[in-house]
């Protein structure tokens, strides 16, 4: 239960970090350490070099961009939780972050670390899927951006090269007054979800849905956007009955099976959780953005 020996590097800039990752063999990045440290302690990973991003201050920022919120990869989950900007511009993220681990782990854990860990049951990858986030990755070879939809290459495997590092996430705005809902079923609070659902809704003056986003986590190897549900909603007047009918489509999603739950159980949860997320989204429409999480810093 002690980490293997490695050489420790603590670059101050993104460029230095990229340089290290392009020259060192068997190097791993260390972000907030809330997943990486257990894996090191249990020797699931045995790097020769560990490149700690903790002192790269340029990567911890929440910035307003035209039409989007831009979040540095090393921004602590705690800073997202207490950010008025996140609450105002991206209430789905503000709701979801409450479900991420525990207070102690959010004090260290980062958004970039969670995205690159890419656990199928983790909250932040599903939020990025729901919002059609754009990711920026950098290496000594240059910088590129990719849509979150193209980010998962497989189970817990992001499609970034060993010498690349995630620097920023851009979360596009939804129209002011949109609805958002995030719900999760876990054995205990703070555990990874068995199944979670994120929903976003925009409606016109007549209550007709103009845009919908429904995402499920914990059911497939990566977050699943349920296009069939989204299509069934757009153009209809939002109601509990509509949601009940539309979310039945979630029952046919191919689901993972593991020690926590069989596939059929997850499919049932997918129906229920997506419906509840939509109901929460509808209930939140037009309400002031500061519903929860406004606790003292």
């Amino acid at each position: 239960m002690k980490p293997p020996a490695f050489a420790y590097h603590d670059p101050q800039t993104v460029e230095e970090a990229c340089q290290l990752m392009s020259t060192l063999d068997n190097a791993r990045l260390l972000a907030g350490g809330q997943s990486m440290m257990p894996m090191l302690n249990m020797r699931f990973v045995m790097p020769d070099h560990l490149v700690d991003l903790g002192r790269v201050s340029a990567l911890s920022a929440i910035e307003e961009r035209p039409g989007a919120l831009r979040i540095g990869a090393m921004t602590r989950q705690r800073d997202l939780e207490y950010s008025p900007l996140v609450r105002a511009r991206c209430p789905l993220l503000a709701d979801a972050i409450q479900w991420v681990g525990h207070r102690q782990t959010r004090n260290r854990g980062t958004i970039g670390g969670s995205l690159c860990q890419l656990d199928p049951s983790a909250e932040l990858p599903s939020v990025c899927a729901a919002l059609d986030a754009t990711l920026t990755v950098q290496s000594a070879r240059g910088t590129r951006t990719l849509a979150f939809a193209d980010f998962p290459a497989g189970y817990m495997t992001p499609s970034i090269e060993p010498d690349e590092l995630l620097t920023h996430v851009e979360l596009p705005d939804w129209p002011a007054g949109h609805g958002h809902g995030f719900v999760e079923f876990a054995r205990r609070h703070g555990d990874y979800a068995v199944v979670l659902a994120a929903a976003l809704l925009a409606v016109d003056a007549a209550g007709r849905i103009t845009r919908a986003s429904v995402t499920l986590g914990g059911i497939g190897p990566a977050p699943v956007r349920v296009g069939a549900v989204e299509q069934a909603l757009v153009g209809q007047v939002a109601s509990a009955t509509l949601f009940r009918g539309a979310t039945e489509a979630c029952r046919s999603i191919e689901a993972m099976e593991d020690v926590h739950a069989p596939a059929s159980y997850r499919q049932q949860l997918a129906v229920v959780m997506s419906r509840r997320a939509l109901e929460a989204a509808l209930a939140s429409i037009g309400s002031p953005a500061s519903s929860t999480g406004a606790a003292a810093h």
């Binding site: 420790y8 350490g33 440290m37 705690r78 207070r103 102690q104 782990t105 004090n107 260290r108």
Partner: peptide, 18 residues
């Protein structure tokens, strides 16, 4: 659990050098 800059963290999940 210890406090680091006032907030609780798990001290098995970070290195002393950090």
């Amino acid at each position: 659990t210890v406090l680091m800059d006032g907030v609780p963290v798990r001290s098995c999940l970070m290195f002393a050098v950090q």
